[in-house]
Every structure is written in C-alpha cells, then in structure tokens.
Design a protein around this nucleic acid. Structure first.
Ligand SMILES: NC(=O)c1ccc[n+]([C@@H]2O[C@H](COP(=O)([O-])OP(=O)(O)OC[C@H]3O[C@@H](n4cnc5c(N)ncnc54)[C@H](O)[C@@H]3O)[C@@H](O)[C@H]2O)c1
Ligand SMILES: NC(=O)c1ccc[n+]([C@@H]2O[C@H](COP(=O)([O-])OP(=O)(O)OC[C@H]3O[C@@H](n4cnc5c(N)ncnc54)[C@H](O)[C@@H]3O)[C@@H](O)[C@H]2O)c1
Lengths: 221, 221
DNA sequence: ACCGGTTTGTTCTCGCGTTCACAAACTCAT
DNA sequence: ATGAGTTTGTGAACGCGAGAACAAACCGGT
C-alpha cells in the first residue's frame, strides 16, 4: 500500500509467509518447553501443521538459519522469528469496549506471553468505569488520546458493538494508532497506511456450515 | 481433500469466494435494514469492502441473480447466498470450555441471528456444572456424545486451554462432529473429511506487530 | 422500433503462493 | 580422506485468485 523507501535490510516477506511465522513461533516454543534443542524442517512442519517444503521456503525469506544435514537450533530460530515479527519487546495495546468479549480478552493470559501488554481498558459506558478487570481499571473512552500518547500505543483492539466500531476506529487513527484488530461485525474504513485485521466468529461458522452442507448433500445414498 | 462424487448440482465454489460470501450476506442484511431494495455491484462491493469486479465474479459462481442495467434485488440475493452457505435453517452448535472466552461466546447474540443455535455448553470442571450462562445450563463434558446424537450436532466450538483441545477434538470427531472452530492456541490433528478453522488472537496481533515494526523502521529520517 | 445510458457476467492476463525435485552442504563412521 | 546418509535452501513448474476490460443484456424515453 504505502511506498516504502527500502533503506537497506528490507527484504520483503510475502504476506502468506508473515501469517505463518507466528504459528512457527508457537510450535518452536512448544518444542523448547518439551526440551528439544534441535529439530528438522520435517518435525517443525508437523508441529505447525504445514508442508515441510513450505516451511523451508518461508524460513528462507528470513535468512539461512539452519544447518544442512542437521536441522534448526530451536532457541536460535525462535529468536530470529521473534525478531523478524517484532515481538522481542512488548507492544502496548489498548482494548476498547469492555463487554462480554472485552472482559475475556482482558483476562487472556496468552496476551502477555506472546509479546503484548494491555495498557488500558476503555469503555463509553460510565457504569463500567472504575471496574477492575484483570487488575486493570476500566476508564472512559475519552482518555484514549492521552493514553495512546503516553504509552506510544500503536495497536488497538475494538470489541464494541458494530454500530460504534467505525467511530472508535476513526478516533484511534486520528491519534496515531497504526494497526487495529477488529472484533465487531462490520467493515472498517481507514486511511492508507493503517492496517486492519478482523476476527469474525460468524463468518468462520458460516464457512464451516457451507462445507457441512456439501458433505451432507453428498451422503444420502 | 475428500473425493466428492459430484452427483449433479455440485458446482464447486472457490474457497476464497466461500470465505467472502458471509461478508456479502452481512452487507446485504445491512442494506435491507436500511430500506434498500435494489443495489448495484458497485454499491454492494463498497459495503463489503471489496473490489466490484471481484464481487461480480464471486456471485457468478452461484448463478445469474442480477439484472444488467439494474443491479441486484437485495432480498432475493440475500436468500440465494444464505441458501448457498446453508444458513436458511439454524445449525445446532456445542461449545466446550466455558471459561472466560466460553462465557463471551455463549452470550454472543449474533450467533442466533446468523444461522446458529447453541444447544449445549460443556465443561470438564464440576464446579461450573449447573451454572446458567445466557439461559443455558453448563453440563459435564461427558454429556457430549448424548447431546451430539440427540441434536444432530455437526459443528463444535473449542474454547478450552490448549492442552485439552486435541482431546476434546478427538471426542467430537469420534461422535460425528464434522466441523470444528478452534479458539485454543494449538494445531489440531483430525481425520480427512473433518474441517477445522482456527481463531487465534495472538497470531492476528503478531501479524499487525510485524507491519508496525516495518512502518516504524522506515520513518526515522 | 430504436438509441443512449447503465450494469452485469465473463474472458483474459498477470502475479502470487504452493509444491516438487534436486544440488549443495553438513555429519559421522571407517 | 573418503563415502554414505541426511537435511537444507532454492530453482522451476503449476494452479489459483485478483483485477482490468469488454461484450451482452436490460431500462426508459422518444
Ligand atoms: N461476545 C462474543 O463472543 C463475540 C463474538 C464475536 C464477535 N463479537 C462482537 O464483538 C463486539 C462486542 O461483543 P460483546 O458481546 O462484548 O458486546 P457487549 O455489548 O457485551 O459489549 C460492548 C461494550 O462496548 C461498549 N461500547 C459501546 N459503544 C462504545 C463506544 N463508542 N466506545 C467505547 N465503548 C463502547 C459498551 O459499553 C459495552 O461495554 C460486538 O461487535 C460483537 O458483535 C462478540
Ligand atoms: N480469553 C480470550 O480472550 C482468549 C483469546 C484468544 C484465545 N483464547 C484461548 O481460548 C481458550 C480458552 O480461554 P479462556 O480464557 O476462556 O480460558 P479459561 O481457563 O478461562 O477457560 C477454559 C475452560 O475450559 C475448561 N476445560 C478445561 N479442560 C477441559 C476439557 N478437557 N473439557 C472440557 N472443558 C475443559 C475449564 O474448566 C475452563 O472452564 C484458551 O486456549 C485460550 O488460549 C482465549
């Protein structure tokens, strides 16, 4: 989207590969916890649920971190992937909309362990202000600008109803948030240069429903 | 994956298109609620956040439901897409793991309105049994087989910790569940013919982090 | 009936992603 | 040192999806 002036070390990694790197990272963490210090592309691919050729090609975009005839050093590769993704330090994150879903997200421990730190929980409903969720106080939505500035927040999570999501996104973008994870069931419009990813439960279920329907209509003999 | 004996009317729709149909469905519902009875591919594409050529191509896989020079009848097209996806009737769904996330999912109203009906909430922890969540009683995980049989459940949702997810999936598959939506941060292994989709918050955030890092390292002049 | 304006459905081209297949490179035993 | 066995990294072929472009089809007015 944005014209990136390739300063130097900006090999660009295919988007499909970027989406798989976190999966590899998780698989490596899992292997490390199991005490494995070295693994082959075959073994790692199995743990990540992908084809080994694809895994090797993906890793080749980062550099040559393996040893032929041996495999990959688990800890070393893990660090390299974490560095490439950018999760060697924690990213500050704000969550907006502390309802059913927002509570679950705030309580999600995997957040912290995977490179993210919730710095604020915001909600428009005064009745929710002051409530402690996972040790963090729910604050007014209008605190957004101040918090984003103070903590240099680059990533925002939207868990409000669909009707408010665009407004929340606009406010986030206006004060410098560059990436948004949207749980609301609506299409967000943002300026070029801002990244949006969506998580939509209904869509996932409907995709499954489509395939189930196909299976069912083939069966009746 | 599975060899489908194409009986007759099985035009197969590209997977990328299948993933967008729910988005179109949502956009159409939105237009219908706003009182719009007819719309052009341009207008619908804008509402769905995609290219109009792509939208037309997607719809062409379903049939010719538009009128040249006019556009699409909103209600008619909506029904056709719903039928194609298979959400003209409700699909029964079980949710396993009623912790933070499971509670939010159970309380999610969009479930019902989009073609799904939660028929049971299951948890392995006896302390949770009997609790009412969104009017549904939490029951022992061992009731799975009986419930799946009684309600002809084809779709299961896993919201347990990662360590239990594979076991839960195995049990689901064993009693006939053909599609699984997995929220646990782990790769599930299932037999051919069973569909699995995953929703992973950490992966989404890490993808955003990667792009943020790229933006940041280009800026410092 | 005809014509200008509009919008769909489809063809064509291009680029990206997946997968195969294999040479290069490493280890270990002899 | 050499060779057998193993595993990585990558070149090349292939298939799918995105988007541009256009002909076919429809509407409304004259
Ligand atoms: N609950 C789920 O499992 C689930 C699943 C998928 C998608 N979603 C989507 O996630 C969103 C949240 O779902 P939920 O169940 O938590 O809803 P909810 O109604 O429980 O919570 C929404 C919260 O957002 C707050 N809010 C409303 N407008 C706001 C604004 N302008 N600024 C800040 N805060 C605002 C409300 O006060 C409320 O606390 C919805 O869009 C829903 O469709 C939820
Ligand atoms: N909370 C979130 O926002 C969030 C976000 C992303 C992913 N996740 C993932 O979703 C899963 C659930 O998260 P959570 O925060 O709700 O965890 P949680 O610990 O609050 O809930 C897990 C529930 O699963 C139940 N359970 C455990 N083993 C079971 C088994 N074998 N059969 C049936 N039930 C069992 C537990 O009793 C508990 O009630 C985790 O894997 C987590 O990584 C959660």
């Amino acid at each position: 989207m944005t014209a990136r002036t390739s300063t130097e070390s900006s090999r660009d990694i295919p988007e499909a590969t970027v989406a798989r790197l976190p999966v590899y990272l998780r698989a490596l963490t899992s292997l490390a916890e199991a005490g494995t210090s070295t693994c082959s592309s075959e073994a790692l691919a199995a743990a990540a649920g992908v084809n080994s050729a694809k895994l090797r090609k993906d890793l080749s975009y980062l550099g040559s971190y393996g040893t032929r005839g041996v495999g990959y050093d688990v800890d070393y590769l893990r660090y390299q992937i974490a560095r490439e993704i950018g999760v060697t330090q924690d990213w500050p994150v704000v969550i907006v909309g502390i309802g059913n879903l927002g509570h679950a997200l705030a309580n999600y421990s995997g957040f912290r362990s995977r490179g993210f730190r919730v710095v604020a929980l915001l909600d428009a409903d005064p009745a929710r202000h002051g409530e402690l969720v996972a040790g963090i106080e729910v604050r007014p939505f209008d605190d957004l600008e101040r918090i984003v500035r103070e903590h240099a927040v680059a990533i925002g999570v939207i868990a409000t109803p669909a009707g408010s999501a665009q407004d929340v996104a606009d406010r986030m973008v206006a004060c410098g948030v560059g990436s948004i994870l949207n749980f609301a069931a609506t299409v967000l419009t943002v300026p070029a240069g801002v990244d949006v990813r969506k998580v939509d439960l209904s869509i996932e279920l409907q995709i499954l429903a489509y395939h189930e329907q196909r299976k069912a209509q083939g069966e009746p003999a």
